[in-house]
Nucleic acid binder design. Structure first.
Length: 872
RNA sequence: GCGGGAGUGGCGGAAUGGAAGACGCGCUGGCUUUAGGUGCCAGUGCCUUCGGGCGUGCGGGUUCAAGUCCCGCCUCCCGCACCA
């Protein structure tokens, strides 16, 4: 396994050697023939074998095989070494799940991350670009169940395969920092983190409704519910009430929201918006209603306290405790029970269907409107959610569509209290939510919305009946899973002492061997059956107690892994504070938009908790975020059922690593989806061979003085350096590649029909191409560098300094327009004066012809680029 | 429904308010050479009476000048979706 041979991934070399001998003669013959002319080089990865590579033949496979061991030896991307005084920069790619070999999506993501990391190195930074594996979790466990093997075996075998693939893909990772979240050395600190939160009341247990698959008899994570169906068996998912562990992320809702100001412009707008919506802060008021026949009043939350006079009924969430209590013993008891059962059994699919009919049960109880004493019928309905606000609402049908739909279904009264000028909701069926003058609202009459809200909120507060309030859509983070392959929750349940933390010196609580355990999902954790493991003495009283048998959501593992990378081998602390201070926050985070909410929100939350405990000195973990798009094929996501899966290993075998990487980077803006069908890895390969050929054509010694070199080519070289640098810094990688291509074309032209191969400017251009290509096509770059007479690694060669004097043009083209249309082009000095340019323009043939005798009204001059002549 | 983003050649895509289509793919022709591929050169938005005209989803507007800015639509993609 360690050498990368894997049943899923036949090595490209193997595929090639079969017919190698048969091709050898033909290849050698062709090579001899081609060597006769300087430009007849070939590039054909699929039909080459290493034995016959020739000076004029770019043998991709041979080049890959040549440099990998050299790089292994040199470890050019090792970071944070003693005495390294380069400034530090932390570039992070989201770490993978070890599910099978790397696929096209990984190929894109890691190619992009590599551009950023390698550019940092060339710019002289000590770049930390670590990698690890998010190796706990359901994919491994399910695969292990399906194959009847230990999840450990499956996981670590896959890691070995992926690791070797990353090596061959020439990812610029610091291999000394590798971590796996399923190692006890890692998850020990997961448990430490859990206890940190537990001791501060930020980790707690509560009963709540969770996703439940009736077929598999298991709790499902939100991510496992796809379109309302269980992702594995396609059974409609329902809800079940279970006691689960939560992290109190809601305590941080405001800060998660407010701190986004730091990320504005640095993170994709889309992600910030998604997080904002997910947190969903809304501002309104709590209002207290007396319930007839109940001692304690009930509070509701509303964003429209101004419409209080329009409340005509009252609704409680059908599945809430309050509803059950209000129904108990009443005339609607039986009807209510039936209704709740129906609601509970309802699948998400039903709940998701839009414009479904409103349902509910009148409980024959009444609430009293605090402002006018009106008796309001209390209904139980499923359109009110138990876990938002207070699980009960005042219904204002005139000004809320949902309430109006409900009122019309059950014939409840509609009272308009805001005159918006629109048709009466009672007759139109359309609730009016806009602004307008208050009516039927006592002292509020005549006020506008904002004023009315302020007035009524103040009044309610004065009378002790309510107050301004804020609510969030964000719910606490459910972190427990009834599964085997995860971090055991370090809690011991003692009949006498309750929930007791496992003492720090007893960490890690290691996962018991899977052998003998039934891992199949059954609604409770498989760990419950590991009797020797479960039964322990209570750390507090010494009495018989049981371990918590749940494991943690893997999002806990990934919520802090970026901290572990600074000191992955430390066994006394989760992370070295001094090193964290040196390296973090992460300068650039690269990963898929799939994690726009969950992972990124959790990581932000945990960072803030650690900050509050004085363990880190910052509040946001990731300064900049780049979300790459997906790799699709023929217009849709790759899937086996569609039969459009492109195998990365196949593409690498056909085109070579560099060509695949370059294709990914050149395809378009990194955040856009790339359709592999629209792209040409073959074209990329052709370009790389063209670039490589330059290095063989150069006919001047290394270190030749370039100052006397061809100024035209030198200018092209320095312009490329300048523009590629800026394009990379702004993530316009596709443009950066285009600029490198332009330089290659310019150098080709200089060699063939310009200054010739002996001019040192050609060497300068070729060397610059090699350095720039080291970001995108490391093998080709290294090979060029070597052929140009340099020692490896080109990746550490350093970005050449741009000579600003070479960015200045000798002459520029001035565009001359008449009435905005281009009529002439003048070649002028870049320092031409406005008056001189105006003269030249007015005297040009194109202008005279276009004016055709007409008078000139105005002349706009923007020297040296543009003149616009406006006729009278 | 709410929120976000995007509409540019045959295709992927370029373009600080100042030459629309960089770079590449594909295609056409030529040269070299050949079994084929590779390589090199030229061309390639549409129309044209060869002067030029028209072109960045549609309709307006601002400006000497709009793919770019403003207003109103249309279409597509993504996210959230009974959150009171």
């Amino acid at each position: 396994m360690t050498d990368g041979a894997h049943p899923h991934d036949p090595s490209p070399r193997d595929a090639l050697t079969h017919d190698a001998q048969a091709r050898e003669a033909a290849t050698r013959e062709a090579a001899t023939r081609e060597a006769a002319t300087h430009d007849a080089a070939t590039y054909d990865a699929a039909t080459h074998d290493a034995a016959t590579h020739d000076a004029a033949t770019y043998d991709v496979v041979a080049v890959q095989d040549k440099w990998l061991p050299v790089w292994d030896e040199m470890a050019p991307f090792r970071s944070g070494e003693q005495g390294d005084d380069r400034p530090k920069r932390y570039i992070l790619d989201m770490f993978p799940y070890p599910s099978g070999d790397l696929h096209m999506g990984h190929a894109e993501a890691y190619a992009l991350g590599d551009v950023v990391a390698r550019y940092g190195v060339q710019q002289g930074f000590d770049v930390m670009h670590p990698i690890g594996w998010d190796s706990f979790g359901l994919p491994a466990e399910n695969a292990a169940i399906a194959r009847g093997v230990d999840p450990r075996t499956w996981t670590y075998e896959n890691i070995a395969v992926q690791r070797e693939s990353m090596r061959r893909y020439a990812c610029s990772f610091d291999w000394d920092r590798v971590l796996h979240t399923s190692d006890p050395e890692y998850y020990r600190w997961n448990q430490w983190l859990f206890l940190l939160l537990f001791e501060r009341g930020l980790a707690y247990r509560k009963p709540s409704l969770v996703n439940w698959c009736p077929h598999d008899q298991t709790v499902l994570a939100n991510e496992q519910v796809v379109g309302g169906l269980c992702e594995r068996c396609d059974t409609p998912v329902t809800k079940k009430k279970l006691t689960q562990w939560y992290f109190k992320i809601t305590d941080y809702a405001d800060r998660l929201l407010d701190d986004m100001a730091q990320l504005e412009g640095q993170w994709p707008q889309k992600v910030l918006t998604m997080q904002r919506n997910w947190i969903g802060r809304s501002v309104g008021a709590d209002v207290t209603f007396v319930i007839e026949g109940r001692d304690k009043p009930v509070t509701v939350y509303t964003t429209r306290p101004d419409t209080l006079y329009g409340a005509t009924f009252f609704v409680v969430a059908a599945d809430s405790d309050l509803a059950a209590e209000l129904a108990a013993g009443g005339p609607a008891q039986a009807e209510f029970t039936t209704y709740v059962e129906k609601v509970r059994g309802e699948s998400d699919i039903d709940r998701l269907s839009s414009d479904r009919d409103k349902t509910g049960v009148f409980l024959h109880r009444y609430a009293v409107n605090p402002v006018n004493g009106q008796r309001l019928q209390i209904w139980a309905a499923d359109y009110v959610l138990a876990d938002y606000g207070h699980g009960a609402i005042m219904a204002v049908p005139a000004h809320d569509q949902r309430d109006l739909d409900f009122a019309r279904t059950f014939g409840l009264p509609v009272v308009t209290v805001v005159d918006t000028g629109a048709e009466d909701p009672a007759t139109s069926g359309v609730a009016t939510t806009g602004d307008g003058a208050m009516v039927n609202s006592g002292s509020l009459d005549g006020l506008g919305k904002a004023a009315a809200i302020e007035r009524i909120t103040g009044d309610l507060e004065d009378r002790g009946l309510g107050r301004a309030a804020v609510n969030y859509r964000l719910r606490d983070w459910l972190i427990s899973r009834q599964r085997y392959w995860g971090t055991p929750i370090p809690i011991i349940h003692c009949p006498a002492c309750g929930e007791v933390a496992v003492p720090a010196e007893q960490l890690p609580v290691e996962l018991p061997p899977a052998e003998g355990l039934d891992l199949r999902p059954k609604g409770s954790s498989p760990l419950g059956a590991a009797e020797d493991w479960v039964n322990v003495a209570c750390p507090r009283c010494g009495g018989a107690a049981r371990r918590d048998t749940d494991t943690m959501d893997t999002f806990v593992d990934s919520s802090w892994y970026f901290l572990r990378f600074v000191s992955p081998r430390r066994d006394d602390v989760a992370f070295d504070r001094a090193l964290v201070d040196q390296w973090l926050p992460v300068e650039q985070y690269v990963g898929g938009v799939t994690h726009a909410i969950l992972h990124l929100l959790y990581a932000r939350f945990v960072t803030k908790v650690l900050h509050d405990l004085g363990l880190v000195g910052f509040t946001e973990p990731f300064r900049r975020l780049l979300n790459q798009g997906m790799v699709i094929m023929g217009g849709s996501a790759m899937s086996k059922s569609r039969g459009n899966v492109v195998r990365l290993s196949d593409e690498l075998a056909i085109h070579g690593v560099d060509a695949v990487r370059l294709t990914m980077v050149f395809a378009g803006p990194p955040e856009d989806d790339v359709d592999w069908a629209d792209l040409s890895a073959h074209g990329s390969a052709r370009f790389l061979a063209r670039a490589w050929r330059l290095s063989g054509d150069v006919d001047s010694p290394p270190g030749a003085d370039v100052t006397a070199g061809d100024p035209v080519l030198r200018k092209a070289t320095h312009r490329a350096l300048d523009e590629v640098g800026r394009a990379v810094e702004t993530f316009r990688f596709n443009v950066a590649v285009a600029r490198v291509m332009e330089l290659v074309n310019a150098a080709r032209k200089a060699i063939d029909s310009g200054c010739g191969p002996a001019d040192p400017a050609v060497r300068e251009a070729a060397e610059t191409v090699a350095v720039m290509l080291s970001l995108f096509a490391p093998f080709t770059a290294e090979e060029m560098w070597s052929r140009l007479g340099h020692q490896p690694c080109v990746a550490r060669a350093g970005w050449p300094a741009v000579d600003p004097t070479l960015l200045v043009q000798d002459s520029v083209t001035a565009v001359v327009q008449v009435a905005g249309k281009v009529r002439a082009k003048l070649t002028v000095s870049p320092s031409i004066g406005e008056d001189e340019l105006r003269e030249l323009a007015l005297a040009s043939d194109g202008v005279l012809r276009a004016l055709d005798g007409r008078a000139v009204r105005t002349v706009i001059v923007r020297a040296p680029r543009l003149v616009n002549v406006v006729p009278g």
